[in-house]
């Protein structure tokens, strides 16, 4: 159950940078690109946490469905 704390910092960094990119693009009047960037970053972050989420689901299954 000891996860890498680095992952959290990494996600936080991505969040901060993407928020800044969003602000810059929005100021220049390219809002649709800004939204696409945010969505893309969300997908990338989702890929980064997919292992952890998988682990979470396995744990839930093993608790409530009495498997393994």
């Amino acid at each position: 159950m000891n996860y890498d704390v680095n992952l959290i910092f990494q996600i936080a960094g991505v969040g901060i940078v993407v928020a800044m990119i969003h602000t810059v693009l929005k100021q220049m009047g390219k809002e649709e690109i800004a939204h696409w960037v945010t969505l893309l970053a969300f997908v990338i972050v989702l890929y980064m946490v997919v292992n952890v989420v998988d682990d979470l689901f396995q744990t839930i299954r093993s608790v409530f469905l009495f498997q393994n």
């Binding site: 990494q10 991505v14 940078v17 993407v18 800044m20 810059v24 693009l25 220049m28 980064m48």
Partner: peptide
């Protein structure tokens, strides 16, 4: 667009390294 390109270049590099 001038400032946008400058800051986007830097922020894009930062994002890539963080990922």
């Amino acid at each position: 667009s001038e400032n946008m390109y400058k800051s986007l270049g830097f922020l894009g590099g930062l994002l890539m390294t963080i990922i």
